[in-house]
Design a protein around this nucleic acid. Structure first.
Lengths: 131, 131
DNA sequence: AAATAAGTTGACGTAAACGTAAATAAAAGA
DNA sequence: TCTTTTATTTACGTTTACGTCAACTTATTT
């Protein structure tokens, strides 16, 4: 696989975001593009991180929260106690995620119920109509 | 089951929200408490709706979006075409939810991977330590 | 070299979802 | 009845996540 690099507009077009968004994410330390003089040069690493960030946004996470999760990813702690702390935080986040999945599945079930109720009503109305 | 009713502070304590939040939701039409003179009187119906709203918030939905979903719940359209429209909107939302569940499960899988990686590193360090 | 396009740094603006404080009214307890 | 307590409306403030200029600087075309 070849190491690609991207200009800011290439990346914005790729993910349908504005350059402001990319600069803002950088301001928060979520992205760290290389500098080619004054201009930003994004690499695959940045692209992947951006993808993760945007998925997080779609899922309703805040940028600070996303930052925390990303720090779990690339954490490489030297101290054992630090490593254990990271593990704890990761587990906590994992439990949150699992709770969220359960909640979403409840929403799904409720929507399906509503759906079948509506379909029943629809069938009745249509039977009534063709008389 | 007895029909209970709640004052605004009872409800806020029940769900750990402020009265401002409840009034704001009312302003947006998400809640419609009875009025006992000038004061608000919430019933079980309101309590259940509030519960749904707060779950929606935890899942990252906006209040407008939540309002739309609630309107699916209590929609009782008279026209067949309207009913079909509601069904369509419901199906669209359902697909969104399912996509969200898939994304969340991906996040879960990634966190589990990170976790096992960290545990391996931890085991190594601990083996190294007791020498 | 001149013109056009792409990118940069401020800096002020904005929508959503409330927080917070002030002024006032109504209910409940002593 | 007097006084806490609870609640109401009004209105300005705040945080997050960007949008939107403006004023330049740097690259790229022609």
């Amino acid at each position: 696989m070849i190491e690609r690099s991207y200009s800011i507009t290439e990346l914005t077009e790729m993910f349908d975001v504005t350059s402001r968004t990319l600069r803002y994410y950088e301001e928060l330390g979520l992205l760290n593009p290389e500098r080619r003089g004054t201009q930003r040069l994004y690499h695959d690493r940045d692209r992947v991180r951006l993808q993760l960030i945007l998925r997080g946004r779609r899922l309703g996470f805040g940028l600070q929260e996303i930052s925390d999760m990303l720090s779990l990813y690339d954490a490489d702690p030297t101290e054992v106690t630090q490593l254990q702390a990271v593990l704890q935080r990761g587990d906590a986040k994992l439990r949150e995620i699992e709770a969220q999945i359960r909640d979403l599945e409840a929403v799904r079930a409720e929507l399906l119920e509503v759906r079948s109720r509506l379909e029943k009503t629809l069938a009745q109305k249509q039977r009534g109509e063709r008389e």
